[in-house]
Nucleic acid binder design. Structure first.
Lengths: 264, 264
DNA sequence: GAGTGGTCTAGACCACTGT
DNA sequence: CAGTGGTCTAGACCACTCC
């Protein structure tokens, strides 16, 4: 009762995992595969779609379908939060040298490209609830995109929301042209007299929306990881809510939980 | 340039989000939708597939397609680890009362159903590396499935691996018929003289494999969250490696990071 | 049997790339 | 131009559910 496209996908997957099809190698054309497996073209395409979603194949329009070379996995560790907070205390010289993403991935700041955009908006229902403010409250919305220079694709996009009145005490914070701000958000907030005390991450997964497939350079079917980060200050107020999206086929989020010792 | 199936999916999505199609409501038949949108049947089906993957629709074979009623989201909080560790110290009476999943979701132990299976296996390359033992080392493999009684579907499946020789000192631990063990893994390990000190979670997302779609009751296209949990004891040894899989359309993993204060 | 969703086909046609 | 992948169609046929 197995579906035909699954039989085809299973066979190709097996060949890839066994190494019979080497990374970087070009597959036969779809029409040729259709003949070989005695199935129709749409069936072959569905099978290839499954393997693309799994990250095993890359189909390039007009060129061919290739076994994907192992892309460097992107790790994002939660200890970056402590690292970022500490960094806010360093000299400007030191702060300029690196950012959070390099801390995670081991990439250099020169390998990465950042894009940011600031808007002033009013809180919708969801954001108002997350920020614990009334709907309609004025917010500073900062949209970020991080990409690897050597690839054409974005590896993470993130939307950060701050309550406007909390950060407006330092007008420099409202100006996107000051990005990338040396020392990151913690240093920005420090200039506004705010200290972050704890961060809560909520992680889920879903298929990508149409615009996200283009930006992240993934096919529909590849899952994306979603992360909502909520930052609380030392008085327990919500300071920042950020929604981030990363491609699921190459991103690993890591978290460490330290446990209290049993009494002896 | 938008694809036709996206136009159809976008239109239906908009109607659902606006409430023009209420949760629980049945959609027109696919053939009827095809006429309405002036597209072919496969195109309608592709559009519906997108919305199913997003968790907005449930198509039931032979019955119809329905706007999905909001399923209860399943939260899994990392503070369950501390909670589970503390539980190992309670009396047997108290330990029997609850388990980790109830702690997370607020569900009662009576609402949930557990299934477990034990095997003895040899470590493959991946597991050997994760457990920091030589390949071929004898392992105790425990496979767990958790489901909600009122639904027919599994909400999480997990495979836990322990080094056989570490736990064999207590033969009761090798017997699946002792599950569910009151007090969970921490209590089990305590009887073997092992105390867990820290846990590292690695989270990613991918499309489901064929067998997972059936078990988790999801359609291909719905993303699954994958979690690898590595537990270290107080001497820094790896004690347990567990791989868990959860449906991405209703699971939220949460983690808290406490930050050190700045010096004043 | 009637109505529903699920899978597959043969083939048309388009879009992209490199020569 | 030839060769590749991408989208869509009309329709056949099957599987499931309810009456």
């Amino acid at each position: 009762m197995a579906r035909k496209y699954e039989r085809v996908a299973d066979d190709l997957r097996r060949k890839i995992l066994r190494g019979e099809l080497a990374p970087g190698e070009q597959l036969e054309a779809q029409t040729s595969l259709a003949e070989r497996y005695r199935v129709s073209l749409p069936t072959v395409q569905q099978a290839l779609g499954v393997l693309e979603a799994e990250g095993l194949l890359d189909a390039i329009h007009g060129i061919g379908t290739y076994v994907r070379a192992n892309k460097q996995p992107l790790r994002r560790k939660a200890d970056r939060y402590q690292w970022e907070k500490n960094r806010a205390l360093l000299s400007e010289e030191e702060r300029k040298a690196t950012g959070g993403t390099e801390h995670d991935t081991g990439l250099n700041v020169d390998d990465l490209e950042f894009y940011s955009e600031y808007h002033i908006e009013e809180a919708d229902h969801d954001l108002a609830e997350a920020l614990e403010v009334p709907p309609g409250t004025r917010l500073l919305h900062r949209a970020y995109q991080t990409s690897i220079k050597s690839e054409r694709t974005v590896i993470s996009m993130s939307d950060s929301y701050l309550v406007y009145d909390m950060v407006a005490v330092n007008p420099d914070l409202l100006d996107a042209s000051n990005e990338p701000w040396p020392g990151g958000t913690h240093h920005q907030l420090r200039t506004a007299g705010i200290e972050i005390d704890r961060v809560i991450d909520e992680v889920s997964a879903r298929p990508p929306r149409g615009d996200e497939t283009e930006l992240l350079g993934i096919k529909p079917g590849v899952a994306v990881l979603t992360l909502r980060k909520t930052s609380y200050d030392v008085d327990g107020r919500v300071i920042e809510v950020a929604n981030a999206i990363m491609p699921g086929d190459r991103t690993i989020l890591t978290f460490e939980t330290k446990l209290e010792r049993w009494p002896s």
